[in-house]
Amino acid sequence: MKLLVLGGTHHVGRAVVETALERGDEVTTLNRGLSRPPVPGVRALTADRTDTRAVAAALGDQEWDAVIDTWAWAPRVVRDSARLLAGRTGHYGYVSSRGVHRWPWPAGADESAPLVDGDPASDDSEDYAAAKRGGELAVTETHGEQALLARAGMILGPYEDVGRIPWWLRRLEKGGRVLAPGPADAPLQYIDARDMAAWMLRCADRGIGGAYTVTGRPGEITIGRLLETALEVTGFDAELVWAPAELLRQEGVWLGMEFGLRFPHDPAPTGMNDADVSAAFAAGLTTRPLRDTIADTWAWLRAEGDPAPRPDAPSPDTWLDLAAERRVLDQL
């Protein structure tokens, strides 16, 4: 199909472009053209998404079978692009987030859980949840049943620029005793960016719209299995030392928050890693083995080096600095 990717250089966007090319799709991207050189085989359009006139000029009067929009900030930008593409595409897929649900998330929540308020005309990027909800409203008001709202859970895999798995791989690489956020059997839910990309493209093929929670099945992965698999894949000489969540809280260490295992105000949050994803799997979502996600992420890091973090991503020392790690390890 003829596909337009609004973005296409980072994380999910890059995964969408590469997956679409593997399928044989005709791919056009639109972005500022500052982060990465154009991918061979892709028609690259250049414009600043915040400049509606520039976007309109870049798009011209072209039409596409499907559009996938990866914008993560002010919803007004999504609204303007969605309006420009009204009547020129049969499908509009928007990369949203589970963050659009009102906190605290109920245990076992599905797509019907309460939502935050959002304004599609807003230029506010500070409130991530409200911005994503505003983006959803912007897409649905223009494209209706043709709009797919992919409410992603935690997104891992190659090209991750948030600093979860890349941070952990670099810490394990240093070796020695490594502080780990217990308990080891705490469940995790995540989606590999490439699995999300493939699912969104299949939905575009089939004309599937609506809102879906897109992440792995609950209960399949634990934090212990994830970190042990990382050691097996890399062969690093490191020993995981599991710390109770209460000790991490007492010592002011954020470890575990990168995976939503706890928060400063909530040591055992519900709803983070037990979402009901039956709708997405019924719509064709498939997920690859954890080992493949870890191995491919490590291969990418070795080939390209650490990615530049997103503007809204935590700094490298947010989760744990070495001095704090030594302090807690001494107590264990």
Rank of each mutant, 00 (worst) to 15 (best):
K2N: 15
K2M: 13
L3N: 06
L4A: 06
L6T: 09
G7Y: 09
T9N: 05
H10T: 06
V12L: 09
A15I: 07
V16F: 01
V16Q: 05
V17T: 07
T19L: 01
D25C: 13
V27H: 13
T29C: 15
L30A: 15
P38Q: 08
V39R: 14
V39P: 13
G41S: 13
G41L: 11
L45F: 00
T46R: 13
A47Q: 04
D48F: 05
D48R: 11
D48I: 12
D51N: 13
A54C: 14
A54G: 14
V55M: 04
V55K: 00
V55T: 10
L59G: 09
L59Y: 15
D61Q: 05
E63A: 15
E63P: 14
W71K: 10
W71E: 05
A72T: 05
A72Y: 12
P75E: 12
V77H: 03
D80S: 14
L85Q: 05
G87I: 01
G87W: 11
R88V: 06
T89K: 02
T89M: 01
G90S: 06
Y94S: 15
Y94R: 04
R98Q: 06
R98S: 07
H101R: 13
G108S: 07
D110A: 15
A113Y: 04
L115N: 07
V116R: 08
G118L: 03
D119S: 04
D119N: 06
P120C: 11
S122A: 09
S125F: 09
A130F: 04
G135A: 13
G135C: 10
E136V: 13
A147D: 08
A150Q: 04
R151H: 08
G153K: 01
I155M: 15
I155N: 02
L156E: 00
G157F: 02
P158N: 14
P166C: 09
L169K: 03
L172Y: 03
G175Y: 03
G175N: 03
G175P: 00
V178K: 00
L179H: 03
A180Q: 00
P181Y: 04
G182H: 00
L188V: 04
Y190P: 00
R194V: 13
D195L: 08
D195E: 10
W199I: 12
A204S: 01
R206E: 14
G207D: 01
G207W: 06
T215D: 12
T215P: 00
T215W: 09
P218G: 07
G219I: 13
G219K: 05
E220Y: 06
I221S: 14
T222Y: 05
I223M: 15
R225C: 15
R225M: 15
L227H: 12
E228N: 10
T229A: 14
V233R: 00
T234Q: 07
F236V: 14
D237T: 07
V241M: 03
W242M: 10
E246N: 07
R249N: 12
Q250T: 04
F259V: 07
L261Y: 02
R262H: 14
F263E: 11
F263P: 00
D266A: 07
A268D: 11
T270Q: 02
N273E: 05
V277R: 00
A279Y: 01
A280K: 11
F281A: 08
A282R: 11
A283M: 13
T293V: 06
T293Q: 12
D296V: 12
T297C: 11
A299I: 11
R302W: 08
A303H: 10
R310A: 15
P314N: 02
S315P: 13
P316C: 11
W319P: 11
D321K: 15
A323F: 07
A323E: 11
L329M: 06
